[in-house]
Write a protein that binds this DNA or RNA. Structure first.
Lengths: 297, 297
DNA sequence: CCATTTGATACCTTAAAAGTATTGATCATG
DNA sequence: CATGATCAATACTTTTAAGGTATCAAATGG
């Protein structure tokens, strides 16, 4: 028994006429008649009551007709869907990003991609930059937004935006309201910074900002998440350099300031150069479209 | 593309080894290899990455594997279900009955049948005896409980029970509390009776009861439903002869009495002698079991 | 009663599936 | 590094199943 037999059965079930059903199946009536007999033999069930002038479905035939419709439709869907998946039009894409990137380019990227590929399920996974690197290499992420960090031999990257760091402090801090703040002004401050292990590029940018003026920052706390850094600053436990995109939504009692010659970090979209996931190429193209849009402003 | 191809694909998807997959399909490896190539060509999709030593599913192949599992399972279910329907183990049975029969044999019949055939959906349809006769003949009911009514050429019947008629009246009626009531005592009473068109057997039994003593009953109302008859009696608009099974649940203010030599009616289960619905035969067998059980008491 | 239509059967032809032999690629072992 | 074993793909041949034609028997309408 096979779907071809179901098609044959359906042709007769819908026409109740051997000759017309055979025509519908592009075959002559005698082999069609034999096929019907064979289907009934294979199932061990009488599907049609018939004589030389009348054909009618049995109750079992009526029931089988409903099931066949469903099975044949699902069969066609399976064949169509595998083609859609192969072409990247359908499937799943595991997308990682730094938490704070959700405040900048990630929503736009997600929106544009979801509109372009409504049948691809985006699996959103907030991760630290270090985790992102590991998961991209390990094949547990298909693409990700992270800080650009130099040489990436088997990853393709698209520069989405560049992001400056700003200094944040409590609103009652002596430096609050200063027009520009340089490293020298921060010499004596307690600094709260993300650890190297969590975000090497970010921490490296902070370190470089100070060391360029021969200053060693007094880092007193190194929590993993930017969110935690902001909370500790709110408690008056120090000040911090954080990505600009996080500064738009600071709570009451907090303020941010402009750094002199602020460090800048590349925010890039990464994916393996060779990906097994057909959905990734369109995702990267949309990243490139965002890149081009930001360049032309 | 056919389910046979899906089976071939699944064999390789599950083993990731051409030789073992070919064995599983009871064929040699070269034609198996050709079949896989043909499936990929038919779909226009690469399902496996492979060389002479390794076989792996592509993402499209992974997706197709899930869909194939579903389609093949549904295909088998369809073939199994048509056999179950053909054998009466599954399907639908349209069952009609007189409203008041829900107070007597119908619940038992429904319970026993549902236990015996849990996958057959009983469609319960309350109908008057005349409607039942028409629908059984017209093929819109598969079986029914009604009054026995003599010669039924193309119906098979099973006697389920015999039911006496009782007289009902308001509790403040002069005849309330009488030990036995004969036709003569009812000569002057306003009688409320079911019409011939609705229940010929019932009305004939009522007419016969009076005419056996040469009395013409004074029928003042002829509503179709027993429920309505009971309500009119409650309003004091007359008295009525109704089936005994309806008397157990009379409302406050109503009472029933025993008739002298009360008329009795057969309550039968009917179905066409030749039914296209395979589920009917078991239903009739359960009717016979109820018949035998009531005879042995 | 006869002609026409229709489903089933008998016989034959064609197409597709499967088998065998072999080749080329890959990997493990010495 | 060479060799042998294993494995997927290809070439050629055989077998099997599907389909076509001719015909028959049954049913129906005129």
């Amino acid at each position: 028994m096979d779907t071809r037999h179901m098609h044959i059965f359906m042709a007769l079930a819908e026409t109740l006429h051997f000759g017309r059903a055979a025509e519908r199946m592009s075959m002559s009536q005698p082999p069609f008649s034999r096929q019907i007999a064979m289907i009934e033999r294979m199932l061990g069930v009488k599907l049609f009551e018939r004589n030389s002038r009348n054909v009618a479905l049995t109750p079992a035939g009526e029931h089988f007709m409903k099931d066949c419709r469903t099975v044949l439709a699902q069969f066609e869907d399976a064949c169509r869907d595998v083609r859609l998946v192969a072409s990247g039009m359908k499937g799943e894409l595991r997308f990682g990003f730094m938490m704070h990137a959700a405040h900048s380019v990630v929503p736009q990227l997600v929106q544009l991609y979801s509109e372009a590929r409504p049948d691809v399920r985006l699996v959103l996974d907030e991760r630290t930059p270090t985790e992102i690197d590991e998961m991209l290499v390990g094949g547990t992420l298909d693409a990700a937004v992270t800080f650009g960090c130099g040489y990436t031999p088997h990853l393709q990257t698209v520069l989405l935006t560049r992001e400056r760091l700003r200094i944040i402090m409590r609103a009652d801090h002596p430096l609050a309201g200063a027009a520009q703040i340089g490293p020298a002004a921060l010499r004596a401050e307690k600094i709260i910074a993300t650890p190297v292990a969590t975000a090497p590029a970010l921490r490296s940018a902070i370190n470089s900002y100070f060391s360029a003026k021969g200053i060693v920052p007094n880092v007193v706390f190194e929590p993993r998440l930017q969110h935690t850094i902001i909370q500790l600053v709110a408690k008056g436990l120090g000040i911090a350099l954080i990505p600009e995109s996080l500064c738009a939504g600071l709570g009451a009692g907090l303020t941010s300031g402009t750094l002199t010659d602020p460090p800048q970090l590349d925010v890039v979209l990464c994916a393996p150069i060779v990906s097994k996931n057909p959905a990734v190429s369109t995702f990267m193209q949309i990243g490139k479209a965002i890149q081009h849009a930001s360049k032309s402003i």
